[in-house]
């Protein structure tokens, strides 16, 4: 896991890129004036705000991250069609359930991304990360964390856990190298 960037004047490269793009999108133009202003904002805002932000792990493999993003987008579309069919079908046949998925990830940012992907993909909404962070004393790491998810139509618990671990967790683990 790598927390610091190589460049001191660019503490959060992805945030800078995001600010640059959002400024251009908000103004809906690529005129030179807006480009310069976007570059200034993209450099100044992360520099000013970096002391307030907790250090987050950086994406080490951007190519893998991009491929994972495309996979997730594709899954979101298929997931929506599946959920739409489930919703319009008979409600009596659905068997909802809570499932606990053991996590290999340790840092909070990858866990947040995993929870959000799980929420957007087929029939699952992530609910909670166990054990409760309030119960842990400062600096005391739990041995094993769990993600509690609610499934709209639970057929095979073990298969679902395996899908989540292989399809969504393994790439995250690899791209953050933790």
């Amino acid at each position: 896991m790598q927390l610091e960037t190589r460049f001191r004047w660019l503490p959060a490269p992805l945030l800078s890129l995001l600010l640059f793009l959002v400024w251009l999108l908000l103004n809906n133009s690529v005129s030179p004036g807006h480009l310069v202003l976007a570059v200034i904002l993209a450099i100044v805002i992360p520099l000013v705000t970096s002391p307030f932000r907790t250090k987050q792990p950086l994406i080490i493999k951007p190519g893998l991250a991009f491929r994972h993003l495309l996979l997730v987008l594709y899954d979101i579309i298929t997931a929506n069609v599946q959920v739409a069919i489930l919703i319009l079908g008979p409600t009596k046949k659905l068997t909802p359930g809570f499932v606990k998925v053991p996590l290999d990830l340790t840092h909070s940012l990858p866990i947040t991304i995993l929870a959000s992907t799980v929420s957007l993909t087929p029939g699952t909404v992530s609910a909670e990360v166990y054990p409760w962070s309030e119960n842990l004393t400062e600096g005391n790491k739990p041995e094993q964390q769990f993600l509690l998810i609610h499934v709209l139509d639970l057929k095979d618990e073990q298969a679902l856990i395996n899908t989540i671990k292989q399809r969504y967790e393994a790439p995250l683990k690899e791209m953050f190298e933790c």
Partner: peptide, 28 residues
């Protein structure tokens, strides 16, 4: 996902009833 997560957290905190055929309630 974030607002969904906040809402389900609030629902679990308020111990909302889920229907009887829900599996794995002990996981909460």
């Amino acid at each position: 996902p974030i607002s969904g997560y906040m809402m389900i957290k609030a629902a679990i905190h308020h111990k909302l009833e889920s229907i009887e055929r829900t599996k794995g309630i002990d996981n909460i």
